[in-house]
């Protein structure tokens, strides 16, 4: 079943230095349960595309549908959870309070809220930290809390904008594993922006390679890797070949400028 469909989506920003074509004629279909990574150099529009899906930006041309609705309708239906590069937790709320926030806004009952908080804390391996304040936790734990927050209201789609970009390699590996595990358990559709080739190859069922000026898709690679992926899979020839393909796609995009 198709969850996200983009047809010839373009997005142009008007700036003092003239128009900037952040996206040009982007077409893409994302199926239910897909793990889709967007990769490319900065300025290729990968974040803009994700924000357009989330209705945080409005395309200037083309058609974009999320769960058979316009992105804005989908936003109002609370069809997706969004995770930013920084945790963006409220310092004046505890971890549990932060996860509770979207639930409060969406009008969940108190008992239901507590149950959901406990469940997602468990899911991201933060059980027992609900009473702490964000500034008492490490960066990796904060980012896990922000993922828990995005999961709490059980949207079918999870949009993640370089969620591990600010973390060190070791923490990132662990969170990648945890994310795959979570994806298998919940069966959500995940859109994931990254600039790391190993991360994209390791996580995704579909890798979207993008390139800048104007922002566009240069290659869409379907991953032949199985859904069960231990970390060691990164040393297999299949993985390395796939990474090579992505690298080629990136280089191809670059030859334009």
């Amino acid at each position: 079943m198709t969850v996200i469909q983009a047809r010839d989506v373009s997005l142009t920003f008007q700036t003092a230095d003239g128009p900037v074509h952040a996206l040009k004629d982007v077409s893409l279909t994302i199926e239910r349960g897909d793990f889709v990574s967007f990769i490319g150099p900065s300025g290729c529009g990968k974040t803009t595309f994700l924000r357009a899906i989330a209705a945080l930006e409005t395309p200037t041309a083309g058609k974009l549908e999320v769960a058979d609705m316009t992105p804005d309708q989908a936003r109002r239906q609370r069809a997706y959870g969004y995770v930013f590069q920084a945790p963006g937790l409220y310092p004046w709320r505890t971890i549990a309070g932060n996860i509770s926030l979207p639930l409060e806004i969406m009008g969940f009952a108190r008992a239901d809220r507590l149950q959901r908080i406990a469940r997602v804390l468990d899911l991201v391996d933060l059980a027992g930290f609900g009473g702490k304040y964000p500034w008492q936790l490490s960066g990796g734990m904060q980012q896990r809390a922000s993922i828990a927050r995005a999961l709490a209201f059980d949207a079918d789609i999870l949009l993640m904008d370089e969620p591990f970009g600010a973390l060190d390699e070791i923490v990132r590996d662990r969170l990648n594993e945890a994310l795959l595990d979570l994806w298998k358990k919940t069966g959500k559709t995940i859109g994931f922006v990254t600039h790391s080739i190993p991360e994209a190859v390791y996580l995704s069922t579909k890798i979207v390679v993008m390139s800048p000026r104007p922002g566009r898709i240069t290659r869409v690679i379907d991953s032949p890797l199985p859904r069960d992926r231990p970390l060691e899979i990164r040393d297999t020839p299949e993985f390395i070949a796939l990474a090579q393909q992505v690298r080629d796609g990136l280089r191809e995009g670059h030859s334009y400028d």
């Binding site: 945080l56 609370r78 930013f84």
Partner: peptide, 10 residues
């Protein structure tokens, strides 16, 4: 980012 987050929760 905080305001965007609020927007994503409608």
């Amino acid at each position: 980012m905080q305001r965007d987050l609020m927007a994503t929760w409608a």
